[in-house]
Nucleic acid binder design. Structure first.
Length: 582
DNA sequence: GCCGTTTTCGGCCCGACTGTTTTCAGTCG
């Protein structure tokens, strides 16, 4: 149950952060400490119980004596007494509003103390009855903003998938580029960091300083602007039509382009860490550049590299900027060269009309050869347990092997490889006999049913089969619709390392499975990964880039990804396991 | 509550915009 524990703990730490945020004053620093700890716990590769057992909690960044104790308590009892006690001192039910635009700690405190409001229902009633407008400082505008915030809070729970956000951002960038005076325009924020889901769209332009007001004025007139939230000379926020997403635009001068892009790319945690590091070394960083702290002299900011270089650090790809240790690596100049689309030599998982794909093997092959520079591709249709997908039985597999050979013969090459996505049954066995699997070039084993139980044992057993080359979409999650099944990822990674089994990075935007932090643990454990599209159509084949992004967010180099290697090397990996890792 | 290339105490990223003020606090990214 690896991650449910971490998730719950992270949630409690966030709650503590919210309580201290509400209490305000100097408690906000305590709040910041808990917020950081919550983030750290959320991103941990191993179950929190393991850190407790090994006594390594204190070594985690942002975890000191006090928080470590609370984590120990959580590990033993599932609760944090301090949180339970604090809940009684604050309008706890209101605190989720802290994340809502229009509500800050001070507003909530006054609503509670001066009007006795302690629930959402109270709040809405009080607004309707006009009670709030009697409070000094709560003018008409402010109340309108609060109402908007509440409305948005109700229907923005789900975030956008990365490709949808990228498409929307491209549209915005195209409009910005056409505005007179705009010199450069780019996407920043979590899109640039290639997070799997996106909240707001962040974009940035550069121009001469005299053009800033003009550009801001033109931007809010664009046809996709539903409503303007803020509009100044350097920043504009609008709601996009019809997506109802917020777009934040920053307007920078030419010399501020790099520092502006850096600031606006984030992450927030990365920026805070870097700025505080800069401060301790006598610098000050803002979106306008890097400055000498004492003299205020501008030292650089035309490029992102300026910022890091002046700090004696090396630049890192946006995908790494989550304050997960990349700053420390950068100080040591040990930023790895991350895997790139151009490194990929083949797709290891795709379907055809032989199961639930939309195109024949021939069609898929010729499409790939036309649009990608791959050296090989693995056909991997479903096995019979996947009834709904018209999975192949043993006889059909043998027939398909003949078919693939014929396709290659006709083409005069060995481009198409034989394979299967074999089902892992409820008991961990596979629904295809070993003697059939032994004849295939590549075998991916996946779970397609039993999503609610703990599937650790099933997956471990599948790894033990010498013909299983790779575990497909290991967690089974579907972003926004199905949670990952309970699974001890640490055990799976250990077993994969031990048995020489690869793990899949499935590039379908709704899967992205494994996800970034699992990828990092796998890499650290020496497990090889494959990036695949799991394509069922031509269009799906183009999802490969999203798998690459996830791999980059997991700090993968080319060497960590098996399908950056020649087919000969892949065979070597496969045969090593088949021959008992000798 | 955390943390240390000035510090084990006293800081904690930094700046823009808004609203309701009348010089600024709150909020946001």
């Amino acid at each position: 149950m690896s991650h449910s524990g971490n998730k719950q703990l992270s949630r409690y730490l966030s709650d503590l952060s919210a309580v201290y945020t509400y209490l305000g004053g100097t408690e906000r620093f305590r709040a910041a400490a808990y917020r950081k700890a919550a983030k750290v716990v959320e991103a941990l590769p191993d179950d929190i119980a393991i850190y407790c057992k090994k006594g390594t909690l204190r070594r985690l960044p942002g975890i000191g004596e006090s928080i470590a104790q609370k984590i120990e308590e959580f590990n033993k009892s599932g609760k944090i007494g301090k949180l339970e006690a604090l809940k009684k001192q604050v309008p706890y039910e209101l605190l989720d509003l802290l994340s809502v635009s229009g509500f800050g700690p001070e507003s909530l405190r006054r609503l509670h103390e001066e009007l006795g409001i302690s629930t959402h229902v109270h709040l809405e009633q009080a607004i309707k009855q006009g009670k709030i407008s009697q409070l000094p400082g709560f003018g008409k505008q402010k109340i309108e903003n609060m109402l908007r915030g509440l409305k948005l809070f109700k229907d923005t729970a789900n975030r956008m998938l990365l490709p949808d956000a990228m498409a929307l951002a491209d549209q915005v960038i195209a409009s910005l580029t056409k505005i007179p005076g705009v010199l450069q325009a780019a996407v920043a924020g979590s899109i640039r960091r290639r997070k799997e889901t996106i909240g707001d769209i962040d974009v940035i332009v550069s121009c001469h300083s005299k053009d800033r007001a003009k550009i801001a004025a033109q931007f809010v007139k664009e046809p996709f602007v539903e409503r303007v939230i803020v509009k100044g000379i350097t920043k504009v926020s609008v709601i996009h039509r019809p997506s109802n997403r917020q777009i934040d635009l920053r307007i920078m001068r030419e010399n501020e382009w790099g520092s502006g892009l850096h600031y606006f790319t984030g992450s927030r945690e990365h920026n805070i860490h870097l700025r505080s590091l800069a401060s301790s070394r006598g610098y000050r960083i803002s979106e306008y550049g890097i400055f000498n702290r004492r003299s205020g002299k501008w030292l650089g900011g035309k490029t992102e590299d300026d910022i890091y270089r002046i700090l004696g650090m090396s630049l890192m790809p946006p995908e790494m900027r989550e304050d997960h240790g990349e700053i420390e690596l950068s100080i040591k100049h040990e930023i790895p060269e991350l895997v790139d689309m151009k490194d990929l030599r083949g797709d290891m998982h795709m379907h055809s009309t032989w199961s639930d794909g939309m195109n024949t093997p021939e069609q898929m092959t010729s499409y790939i050869q036309k649009h990608f520079r791959y050296d090989y591709t693995v056909l991997s249709d479903h096995s019979p347990a996947s009834v709904i997908t018209h999975g192949m039985n043993a006889k059909q597999v043998l027939k398909q092997i003949e078919k693939v050979r014929a396709i290659n013969r006709n083409a005069g090459n060995q481009f198409l490889k034989t394979g299967i996505e074999v089902d892992i049954l409820m008991n961990g066995e596979l629904d295809m006999p070993d003697e059939i699997l032994a004849q295939l070039d590549w075998v991916t084993a996946s779970i397609h049913r039993g999503f609610t139980k703990d599937n650790t044992e099933r997956l471990l057993k599948a790894c033990e089969n010498r013909y299983v080359c790779c575990i497909g979409h290991p967690t089974g999650r579907l972003i926004g619709s199905r949670a990952a099944y309970p699974l001890n990822m640490d055990e799976l990674i250990r077993k994969a390392a031990l048995t020489g089994t690869a793990l899949e990075i499935n590039a379908q935007p709704r899967r992205l499975d494994l996800k970034d932090e699992h990828i990092r643990s796998a890499v650290q454990a020496g497990v090889k990964l494959v990036i695949t599209t799991d394509a069922h159509t031509y269009a799906d084949l183009h999802n490969m880039e999203f798998g690459i992004y996830m791999a980059r967010r997991g700090w993968c180099t080319k060497n960590d990804i098996l399908n950056t290697q020649s087919w000969k090397e892949i065979e070597h990996f496969r045969d090593k396991k088949r021959n008992g890792n000798k």
